[in-house]
Amino acid sequence: MIRQILNFTLLFLFLIAIQVLVLNNIQLGGYLNPYLYIMFILALPFNTPKWLLLILAFALGIGVDLFSSTMGMHTMSLVFMAFLRPSVLKVIAPRDGYDTNQTPGIQDFDFRWYLIYVSILTFAHHFVLFYIEVFRFSDFFFTFSKVIVSSLFTILLLLISQLFNYNAQVKR
């Protein structure tokens, strides 16, 4: 338990650093803005209390906002995503439910389950984020294309990062 808390604290700091120092500088044609930090909320264990989920999302959002001078934007979209997470998990739950010792990742579930889980939440997060950023609905489809392209890139990064802790021998 203590080890888990320590791990997630390190992940929290690491994701803010990666987002601020590396990913915020990726600017391909004004379309591609990957936001990998949402991985933190996606990776939290299933038995995380709902209120803790929101608080962690709020803290992480503020952290990223502080360093991007976009006060409130990331906080809003990440809290929204954390709010959706329990319902999404309920909808796509496997027939016999979740085990408490399982974590949401391709280690414990098949690739298809993980892709659906990640896609829905990433899209929701990016959708809110990009529309709050422009703060208007003119140019709807231009913003929408930004949402789509950036979501695809973020999902790709999330899948790649999954491979880091994937261990074929211990497949449950």
Binding site: K50, W51, L54, I55, A57, F58, G61, D65, T70, M71, G72, M73, T75, M76, V79, F80, F83, P86, I132
Partner: peptide, 19 residues
């Protein structure tokens, strides 16, 4: 849960509007 979400989101909106 929903009310707590609204509270945090409201706070985020406040930050955003000020910004």
């Amino acid at each position: 849960f929903f009310l707590f979400f609204l509270l945090l989101e409201g706070f985020a909106v406040l930050l955003l509007i000020q910004n």
